[in-house]
Amino acid sequence: MRLLRPRGVYEPQEDTELLAKAARSELRTLHLPHHAEILDVGTGTGALALLAARCTAARVTAIDISWRAVLAARYNARRLGLPIQVHRGDLTGPVKDRRFDLILSNPPYVRSPRRAKDAAARTWAAGADGRAVLDRLCAEAPTLLKEGGVLLLVQSALSGVAPTLERLGDAGLSARVALRDTVPFGPVMESHAEWLERHGVIPPGERKEELVVIRAQRT
């Protein structure tokens, strides 16, 4: 679907597509009740929230820290006639008092030596280890899941899959890698390639990364 994407709002790409694939599969098998609650954390254009609203009768909520993203997601939902609620806030802050059957998230996870200086960089930059947002999400999201609820998040393997699985397990969830895909570096990763080589994150000449979707369920 064609979506409005203002400058500084994350453009849906391979990681979004991989998470969307996992979400479609989950929505087919989870057997959500009519009154189910779905949350999209870091919604950007609203692509994943809109997918959920198209596939279910659930109440869909989306959050982003960027006002541009919030307004874009609201506009896209209105244009497509899909009833999603979009809030501005830091990660799960606006919905601390609610519980969800399904949480989706494509958080910033790119390892970067520099702090994000503009809105566009904040959509992907996640510190030298790539975990500045991932670790917070692993701490916050489990508390928002209903019994049997599922968290689906996408990240690069370069940011550490084992720590994500460990943190979600420590939070009481059953976590595993649900999907994998290897993709060529995009412009952002290309610009960081030499730094990643110097720090031993990738071997010399490597210009691909593995993306993973992690599924974690409160059982």
Rank of each mutant, 00 (worst) to 15 (best):
Q85S: 14
S66K: 01
A120E: 03
D118R: 03
A58R: 10
A72V: 04
N106T: 07
R88M: 07
K117Y: 04
L104A: 06
R88Q: 10
E147I: 01
C138I: 13
E147R: 14
L144K: 11
G149A: 10
A58K: 02
P113A: 14
P142D: 02
L145T: 05
S105N: 05
R88A: 02
A121G: 03
V70I: 06
D90W: 03
G81Y: 09
A132W: 08
R79C: 07
A120Q: 02
R78E: 12
A58I: 03
R74P: 06
R78Y: 05
A72Q: 05
D97P: 08
R74K: 09
I65V: 15
G130P: 11
R122P: 06
A141R: 14
R131N: 00
I63E: 07
L102Y: 00
R79F: 08
L134I: 13
L134Y: 01
R74I: 10
R122L: 15
D90N: 15
L137I: 02
A119V: 15
L91F: 03
V95L: 14
P108G: 10
W67C: 05
K146Q: 09
R131I: 02
A77L: 09
I103Y: 11
E140M: 02
P142F: 11
A69D: 09
V133I: 11
N76I: 04
T123Y: 06
D97W: 15
G148I: 14
R115A: 14
A121T: 13
K117S: 12
D90R: 11
D64Y: 03
A132S: 09
G81N: 12
A62I: 07
A132I: 01
P108S: 07
A141H: 07
V110K: 14
I63D: 09
A69I: 13
L145Q: 13
A58Q: 05
K96Y: 10
L137K: 00
S105H: 05
A126K: 03
A120P: 01
A77M: 02
R99M: 12
D101Q: 10
R74G: 08
I103Q: 12
L71M: 02
K146C: 05
P94V: 08
P142G: 10
P113K: 12
A125F: 14
S105K: 09
G81P: 07
G89L: 02
R131V: 00
P108W: 13
G127E: 00
S66R: 02
K146L: 14
R59E: 12
N106L: 00
R115W: 03
R98C: 12
F100C: 11
R79Y: 04
V110L: 10
T92Q: 06
V133L: 01
D97N: 10
L134C: 07
L80I: 00
P108H: 14
Y109I: 08
L144N: 12
R99T: 13
A73L: 04
P113N: 09
A69F: 10
